[in-house]
């Protein structure tokens, strides 16, 4: 590398600009690929983008900490996006209020199932406590799940990855599974995928049906609330 090219690289790798562009660029390309494949769930834009960004980091020998300095501006928007979920919730308030009883039942049953089944299965593989704790909030939206894992002695970065994988797995599974079960209620389908697979599941639900997307968003918000309260109790009961 010439001196000038080297100093250009030093500049770019030190500013947030480069990694912000890489993150957005990877997403734009991944989103186009997903569109080209008719939104097939296996072409999940998050999965494709993460692989692409990870390869760029590996090829340029860049650490995650340096990358995150740029990407944190995108990461920050998770908070406002969570707040903005109030808007589809409000717009669909009549449908939501009519379904308040099944929603409350599915929320409690689903939330406990998500935690207990994950921890019980992981224990069969003899995993240490820190990994069990990192896996337990896998169905909760990333900022909340990472916070829960950190508070209880887990590893927030591992939790972020497991949450992402859960989102992709749920998005891939949901449409064929619900069709196989002959579930035609878009509210129930959306609620299940939002509860099990948080924001990635919600994004998938919005691609399929807007009512399903709305219920997925509600389930994601409520499950974050319920899991934050229930998970410490369930873990105490199952692990200690």
């Amino acid at each position: 590398m010439t001196d000038q090219a080297f100093s250009l690289w030093v500049y770019l790798s030190q500013t947030p600009l480069l990694w912000l562009v890489v993150t957005l660029g990877a997403y734009v390309v991944a989103d186009r690929i997903s569109q080209a494949f008719g939104r097939h769930p296996l072409c999940n834009p998050v999965l494709v983008s993460v692989i692409a960004v990870a390869l760029v980091l590996w090829a340029t020998n860049t650490s995650y900490a340096v990358y995150f300095e740029g990407a944190k501006f995108v990461h920050f928007l998770l908070g406002p996006a969570t707040v903005a979920l109030a808007i589809p919730l409000y717009q669909n308030r009549r449908i939501v209020l009519r379904a308040i009883v099944p929603m409350a039942a599915a929320l409690i049953v689903g939330s406990v199932t998500a935690i207990v089944s994950a921890v019980a299965l992981a224990r069969m593989f003899d995993m240490p406590r820190s990994i069990l704790v990192s896996l337990a909030p896998k169905s909760v939206t990333a900022p909340v799940g990472m916070g829960i894992a950190e508070t209880l002695g887990g590893d927030p970065a591992l939790t972020a990855i497991l949450i992402m994988l859960t989102g992709v797995v749920g998005s891939v599974m949901v449409t064929p599974l619900m069709n196989a079960l002959r579930m035609k209620d878009w509210r129930a389908r959306g609620f299940a995928v939002g509860l099990a697979s948080h924001g990635i599941g919600t994004a998938r639900a919005f691609q399929v049906n807007s009512l399903a997307g709305t219920f997925a968003g509600i389930a994601m918000g409520l499950n974050a609330l319920v899991t934050a309260l229930l998970l410490p109790l369930v873990l105490q009961w199952m692990v200690e």
Partner: peptide
């Protein structure tokens, strides 16, 4: 904000 919810998960997920 909600149309591109997926984008917002990338930075944390690259932590893999």
């Amino acid at each position: 904000l909600l149309a591109h919810l997926s984008l917002l998960f990338i930075p944390a997920s690259v932590g893999v």
